[in-house]
Amino acid sequence: MPKIKAPVRTPHIDMTPMVDLFSVLLIFLLLTASFRPSEVKPIEAPTSVSEKQAPDNDIMTILISKDSLIFFNIDNGKDTSTHFRSKLLQKMGEQYKITFTPAELNRFGKMAAFGMPIKDVKSWINASESKDRDLLQIGVPTDSTDNQLAWWVRLARLTNPGAEVALKADAETPYMTVKKVMDLLQENKVNKFNLVTNLMKEEVTLKDLPPKQ
């Protein structure tokens, strides 16, 4: 008996649900990407047992990379209409006799952490490619003759007096660099620091207590 051949049909899979899925994933990724601040340099924070969460708004972040480059970041505050970033840049411009156009100020308001001498901020804002922008990130100067970080901190304190200071340094950063930044902050009446760390649970109970001799 001859075999009955099943006609060959091209198996086609309906892709619509998959498309749905990927669009959802894409939206999700896009949303999370905007939450995470784009980092200038990878900074591996040290670990601690602290479970306190970093505040969402009103935070001034000083980032210190492994090679002791210093970057600065400040948010726009809880109410975005306050435009702390733009105001800060304007004040900084007045300090260093650099005029920024309203468009530049506005654009700066939406950007993230930066680290460059004030004279390069303009070209950083206007750089069209992210590659060019990253090349400008050479750290905020902190020399004693022209301590621009001190001015950023001072003016940021004036712009947003409620801002807390967070210090995010790489675990391998020399302590002296961190100390220099902390001293500078203390000169600007910042005595409370939030050191950004990664959580690593560790518990010591009464059992771990060494016996009495």
């Binding site: 602290s50 306190k52 970093a54 203390q186 050191l195």
Partner: peptide, 13 residues
């Protein structure tokens, strides 16, 4: 999984 912070307060200089 937001970043955690460790708060230290230094004496005023």
């Amino acid at each position: 999984s937001k970043p955690k912070v460790m708060v230290i307060t230094m004496p005023e200089k």
